[in-house]
Amino acid sequence: MLRLPNFEVRTPERLDEAVALLAELGEGARVIAGGTDLVPNMKHELFTPRVLVSLARLPELRGIGDAGPGWLRIGAMTSLADVAADARVEQHAPALAQAAGLVAGPQLRTMGTLGGNVLLDTRCQWYNQTYFWREALGFCLKKDGTLCHVVEGGSKCVAAASNDTAPALMTVRAELVFAGPDGRRVTPIDDLWIADGIANKKCGRDEILVEVRLPHSGSGHRGAYGKLRDRGSIDFPLLGVAVKLELNTEDAVADADVVLTALQARPVRIKRASELLRGVRIGTEAFLAAARGVAEQAHKQAHPMPNIPGDADWRRAMVPVYVRRTLEAAATRAGPVHAV
């Protein structure tokens, strides 16, 4: 049995009220969306806020719809199940729909939100444990301690970004709309990340993610998500691969993007993916060769660590395999890539 520490719950009905509440309560408060990340973490005493501010009653954070010409908006409180099943998301960002559909299991996708997924805490097998367990090992840098169990002598936490939707959102150049004490700010999701496992996002404790915006895609857009995990049903990613291809009228690649997650503290963009694939027509030998080139580049860039479960060497060996398969799946609209 894992008891939650004591706290009080507030359920503001308006966004400005929620923002003011967070500003007033300061460090003692935390936002709760679906609670599927926060509640287990609180049971493990990783966070012990005095007050939880629920976003459940804020109308601005709900629903999927238009955000001005050429943009789709997804309210931060939209459940992952709704993101995965939405025809507009499927049309404009197939990789996102696939990634959302592969998060955890069905109950957690009904409860968990897109906003909570974007703002998911980093994960590490030495951190996502009970207080008792962590104490027995003398804690670690990320919480209550002074050393890292992953990198011996390391002074920087390397807990892994493990949110499936983040890399998919990066490939489609999504933007995030935050509301805070100084009003609203819009930031490209690429600029959210910091390579620091302790806090891998530039987002204040007093800020609320209101919505995620995606540019509409054209008819040449292809996307796919590949996910490696132990149990196909409920596990966090051991590796996540999001792919975008933009095809021209001849079905040749005009632009491409590949972003990996579950390796290090922030999602990793594979260098030269667009350069290696540009001009190549899908369904040809040349495409397969170019995809292998991108896979090799990913293998060079990816250095999984024993931060999350799964043998690190095996996870590294799977990087080129999943990159290649996910590129092929994007080209043929056969995603997601998910073997178990």
Binding site: V9, G35, T36, S54, Q107, L108, M111
Partner: peptide, 13 residues
Amino acid sequence: GKPVLACLTLAAL
């Protein structure tokens, strides 16, 4: 009507 996990659901909500 939808399956959820009661161990992660706050009763207050």
